[in-house]
């Protein structure tokens, strides 16, 4: 009996010690983790926009984040967008609820600051409040509208699709005509040496400069990449030559990776799906914003 008691006491003490060590470590690292993730994300975004490591980012460039929610009740569904208001920094957000046919249902102001909106839980709560009881709002995705001196120059879209093994997480940059400016693979679990090559320059740079019309019907071909095109893709040629090759191949299909046709196809189909859906949605949103004459920041 006494034995039992000492075991229990000692085990409790060791558990408490372990818990305090882990708790302290969690408190210290969680903020750093969030911060680093944010920095990394910003870096990826600017790189996609053409500002490589260390390049100076002009003051006039601004990123506006729009959050999309799927609103559903027992009977019907609609799409809600959380868009930043135009005037000033602390202007808050507008919540625009659009029905499935693209007509405005309602429009509400949501008081959120720019830092609050980054916190997933605070944002979800505010949106839930805006849609009211009886409806549930599920966060769907986030798009970033890039403006230069108030003029739209690009969109950044995140997306996730099924790869060969598990999900592939990407970020795309498209210009206002929905031509691809670039693609970055954020996360994947494909096989090293085979599907994992999707993150290599010679694969992902093939998507650079594909116009919207070509994207609609994009496919993959099982053929080796021509030598000079390969050089252009890996950046071994001069800037002018790279642009020439990009122009020459812009309407062509994607060359599949050797031994990883399924991964290549998954990426090209995934990118196509993301861009097509985005193009439809942004047109609907723009139309509503124009009709309602809502002043938004982008």
């Amino acid at each position: 009996m006494k034995d039992m008691l000492t075991i229990v006491v000692r085990l409790t003490i060791s558990c408490l010690l372990a818990a305090s060590v882990m708790g302290v470590c969690f408190i210290f690292t969680s903020n750093a983790k969030k911060h680093n993730e944010h920095v990394k994300e910003q870096q990826v975004m600017y790189e996609l926009l053409g500002y490589k490591n260390g390049a100076k980012i002009p003051e006039s460039l601004a990123l506006h984040e729009v959050y999309r929610y799927v609103i559903s009740s027992s009977e019907k569904q609609s799409i809600g967008y959380l868009v930043p208001k135009a005037s000033g920094k602390e202007a808050g957000y507008d919540f625009v609820n659009i029905d499935l046919n693209g007509a405005l249902l309602e429009n509400k102001a949501v008081a959120l600051s720019e830092t609050e909106v980054l916190e997933t839980e605070t944002r979800n709560k505010a949106v839930q409040q805006a849609v009211g009881a009886g409806y549930t709002a599920n966060f769907a995705d986030r798009i970033i509208i890039v403006t230069d001196n108030g003029k739209r120059i690009a969109y950044l879209i995140g997306g996730k699709f099924q790869g060969f093994k598990t999900f592939v997480n990407v970020m795309l940059a498209v210009d206002p005509n929905f031509s691809l400016l670039g693609m970055e693979i954020l996360e994947h679990e494909e096989d090293p040496g085979l599907g994992a090559e999707i993150e290599q320059d010679y694969f992902k740079n093939q998507f650079k400069g594909k116009p919207f019309e070509a994207l609609k019907t994009i496919n993959v071909v099982k053929a080796p990449i021509p030598d000079d095109y390969l050089k252009a893709l890996t950046g071994k040629l001069s800037e002018a030559d790279i642009l020439k090759f990009r122009e020459q191949y812009k309407d062509k299909d994607i060359y599949a990776l050797t031994g990883a046709t399924i991964s290549s196809k998954a990426v090209s189909n995934g990118v196509k799906g993301i861009v097509l859906k985005f193009a439809y949605r942004i047109n609907v949103l723009d139309k509503v914003l124009r009709e309602q004459q809502l002043a938004v920041s982008f």
């Binding site: 060590v21 882990m22 690292t29 969680s30 983790k33 993730e37």
Partner: peptide, 12 residues
């Protein structure tokens, strides 16, 4: 757990 949290935070 400690090394896991540290790596996830500083060397993502």
């Amino acid at each position: 757990t400690v090394i896991d949290l540290v790596l996830a935070a500083y060397l993502p």
